[in-house]
Design a protein around this nucleic acid. Structure first.
Length: 265
DNA sequence: AACCGTTCCAACCGCATGTGG
DNA sequence: GCCACATGCGGTTGGAACGGT
């Protein structure tokens, strides 16, 4: 006995949507909005479609400001960076790209971008068509180089979170970006560090700095590092974690350690 | 022109998660 | 806390379009 279908499969139309159906759905939603019940919508709108199908059609195709096809290099970079960090969380990835749907991003990844990256990998390209003007550059998943010798911070610059890819922050806060050649000395971190991490052997097993078993060190000013626990340890991951945690109580100013196997992103 | 393989994308399916009673 | 239902999400599929032979 399988799962019960969400609607009567015999009385609903399936397959491609006709222009008339699109117009009916669009017109209904423009008049009534998405009032919270997709299941009841088809009947109210006079459509012989499953509610889930209506929802999908609206979200992926009819919704205003949807972009189709023509992904830019910058979008490629963002998709790859996020995929590398969080995997196939298409809705999250899509939320970082204005006007893109999860379905679109997923299709694009499966049909084009994955092959593009594999091709780039075969040619042993360290960087995948980096865009020098982009805020966010992608680093190909090549094996990490040997650990670097301990040297102090080599670069520090201020930036606004709004200069990061769209959606990373829903608010605009000043940040200070430090680049390290090696993991920072934890004891010297300022009190308002939100998240730090490194991808070399951990130096401390301490409740305030997270789990050594994950090969990462995390901390935040709220004392709650759990939101980072499932992420793989790399500075890229931690940067994204910090930026995607809009619900966290972030201080007015942040310091975020940032290391990518010795490379700046 | 006909056939065949490939690509691309809209749509479906079913599980996971959220929410209200 | 439990249950039922709605919604969200990611994997998969079907078929149209396209290109090569």
């Amino acid at each position: 006995m399988g799962r019960a279908p969400c609607c009567d499969q015999t009385s609903v139309k399936r397959g491609p949507w006709s222009p008339e159906e699109d117009a009916t759905l669009r017109s209904y939603l423009e008049r009534h909005g998405i009032s919270g019940n997709w299941i009841a919508l088809p009947q109210k709108a006079g459509l012989k479609r499953c509610g889930k199908s209506c929802r999908l059609r609206w979200l992926n195709y009819l919704r205003p400001n949807i972009k189709h096809g023509g992904f830019t290099q910058e979008e490629d970079n963002i998709i790859f960076s996020l995929y590398k960090s969080i995997g196939s969380r298409w809705s999250i990835i899509a939320s970082q790209l204005h006007g893109r749907t999860d379905n679109d991003v997923k299709n694009y990844w499966n049909s084009k971008l994955k092959k593009k990256i594999l091709t780039a990998g075969e040619t042993n390209t360290r960087h995948f068509a980096p865009d020098p003007t982009a805020d966010f550059h992608f680093v190909s998943p090549s094996p990490p180089p040997p650990p670097q010798p301990q040297v102090p911070t080599i670069k520090s610059e201020a930036f606004l979170s709004s200069s990061l890819p769209p959606g990373c922050f829903d608010f605009n806060i000043p940040c200070i970006l430090h680049s390290y050649q090696t993991p920072p000395i934890l004891q010297q971190l300022p009190a308002d560090v939100v998240a730090i991490g490194y991808n070399t052997p951990p130096v401390a097993e301490d409740a305030s700095v997270g789990s050594a078993a994950s090969s990462s060190v995390t901390t935040d000013n709220t004392g709650d590092a759990s939101f980072l626990s499932e992420l793989e340890s790399s500075w890229t991951d931690l940067l994204l974690a910090s930026f995607s945690e809009g619900g966290h109580q972030l201080p007015a100013a942040q310091e975020i350690g940032f290391l990518t196997n010795g490379e700046m992103i």
